[in-house]
Design a binder for these strands. Structure first.
Lengths: 352, 352
DNA sequence: CCTCCTTAATGAAACGTTACAATGCTTGGT
DNA sequence: ACCAAGCATTGTAACGTTTCATTAAGGAGG
């Protein structure tokens, strides 16, 4: 029977107008203490709960920000999400977390959803297949910040220098004496993947090596299963063509590669060394602790949310910024033949 | 200038009434093809986007379901979330994912948020500290389904038999000859933790052992850091009091324990065996592959969403159900002294 | 030519808030 | 006594949809 208690019911029970109830809710200081108490009493007596839809309709926008990630089950993105969520909460905003799963169609559906909800803004790691959809959204006045992906001038983004990261990774492998490398990752529509590869190629070039020193094994997605498939293909190559080191586009792929190689009794790092990327928490505790390139995950999310809020507040003009963090190489057992203990997560951090 | 294109603008451009536009949107078949096309043309010409707030206000409820989990960075919950999300999508609903972080205060804030948004229903793994808040919500007509936690009669829940799971785990350790066990997990306000412990105790009893055979090391949360701290405390006990096997309330804790023991050069499983719980994807690829108790994670989420939707559709009366899945023991290297290859994720599955 | 049906389209009233301008009521100063 | 100023409160018009009862326009049957 109390089906939906509205501001009206509260008003009549407290013997005031709806406007006063609204005031109690939004600007308690301007209403007389006695009235305020009466209203508050009515509110709790009736179990009144504000209707956000109505508030949003009135306000013309919601208190949400959208966060569209490529894969919720990837710890990299959940850490980014936490960072964004924490900052959003500080500003009284909630985050709608959307999982595009690297599928353009899903991405589109979620963008539609977010626009329909009149979100304050959108944080997104794009699949890369809807290039100007994001511009349309911006044109409609909704701030968009790219996450983990560098934007062109005139757009906001928060990213890590993936080219540099790829360079760090390949350089590390070359320094360890490897000369037959493989890059495992994909699809190349993801800029992260392309950039990390570019970085690796740049490193090869600097070392005076030919591009052919790096075999490219493309995967349909950046997850454990894809890594396993790719490793199987690599393992089946004739021994003299087989790479001695594999640079994976992210840690999930690297873990997949590791698992498959181990299953086939190919020793890591002795026969094949493995590099991951992201340095997710589980990289350190892997069967063979993974060497990886660390990204400031939570900071990435936080900074992105900051930029978004900054833009949405600046009614006038807002200076778009591209924030770039530097990646950091973390060396562990998977690339280190001389590591002390095959199991220990012994770790050294090398420069930023 | 196109600031906010509304149904009205579309209507006037197409030369029809707003009602017709609404019909085109919601029941296209009842409007004449010619008019329909005209309206659709206007919609795309103006870049019209439906305003969900207004729709929801009108409808009295949103197209969201809320999912409140204890820890988004725990892969167990992201898998559950995916399951729930998939089913929700099939019904045109979106999921608001909320991370209580095991903190009652955050949980409360999110429940408020969800109620204000008039969500269709709430899926929650409760912290256990707001026992009747959920009943209040139910009383207001919002379906609530407990996830990963068994509910009393008259409420809906989807869970895995944690007592049985705890029993499986402890029985496995006892069969391996261990007689000094430790249980690591907490807080005990989480029913999962209590149930898993109860299962272990039940197994001890059946084996004719005293409760004192199981040392209890409580942790403040179920994450890697807590596991490391607990392992440090265990490691510092005099050798003859030190357990020979540790049963962890979840895999994150187990990974923490594993990392800390390895750091201290305590061999796993030779000196101390470790059991996890949940069988998250990373358990198999851990430094020492973790023996664990597998839960049907995605199914859990899916089934929960199913129950929720079922209840929200049944305007009349709905039969509350408690769905219970059976856990499954997965034996790997962390408890298996005779495993073939210290690194391989070699795996055997034992009964359900 | 009138009536009765069917199909298309419309007008207007909600839905629950909020903000703005307006109203009363006090109070203090002159 | 009167006015100005301040405070507390209120009426009411939005916000953008959807829905329901209506109207209008043809067409078929008599």
């Amino acid at each position: 029977m109390d089906g939906q208690v509205g501001i009206k019911d509260v008003a009549s029970r407290a013997g005031v107008s709806t406007a006063t109830v609204s005031n109690v809710l939004n600007r308690p200081h301007i209403v007389a203490p006695a009235t305020r108490d009466r209203v508050l009493a009515a509110i709790s007596a009736l179990g009144f709960i504000r209707n956000e839809s109505a508030r949003q309709l009135r306000a013309g926008r919601s208190r949400f920000i959208g966060l569209v990630v490529l894969d919720v089950t990837n710890p990299f993105f959940t850490d980014v999400a936490r960072g964004a969520e924490d900052l959003a909460n500080e500003f009284g905003l909630a985050v709608i977390l959307c999982n595009s799963d690297e599928q353009p169609a899903r991405e589109t559906r979620y963008l539609d959803l977010l626009e329909q909800h009149r979100v304050r803004g959108i944080l997104i790691t794009p699949t890369g297949s809807n290039p100007h959809r994001l511009d349309e959204i911006r044109a409609r006045g909704i701030p968009v910040v790219l996450v983990d992906r560098h934007a062109r001038r005139g757009r906001c983004s928060v990213s890590v220098d993936d080219v540099h990261g790829g360079d760090l990774a390949a350089t590390h492998l070359l320094e360890r004496g490897h000369r037959r490398l493989a890059f495992v990752g994909g699809p190349f529509t993801l800029h992260q993947v392309q950039d990390r590869l570019d970085g690796a190629l740049q490193s090869l070039k600097r070392a005076g090596l030919d591009e052919s020193a790096l075999h490219i094994e493309e995967t349909p997605a950046l997850n454990v299963a894809s890594g396993m498939d790719a490793a199987a293909r690599l393992a089946e190559r004739p021994a003299h063509q087989r790479p001695t080191a594999v640079f994976c586009a992210n840690d999930l792929v690297a873990l997949g590669v590791l698992q498959e190689l181990t299953r086939r009794h190919i020793a890591v790092p002795e026969e094949i060394a493995i590099m991951g990327y992201d340095d997710i928490a589980f990289a350190a505790s892997a069967a063979v602790p993974l060497t990886s390139v660390r990204q400031p995950r939570a900071q990435l999310g936080r900074a992105a949310a900051e930029l978004l809020i900054e833009e949405s507040r600046a009614d006038g003009h807002h200076k778009h910024r591209q924030v770039v963090f530097e990646p950091e190489l973390v060396v562990r057992g998977s690339t280190d033949m001389v590591h002390l203990d095959g199991r220990a997560g012994l770790e050294m951090t090398v420069e930023g």
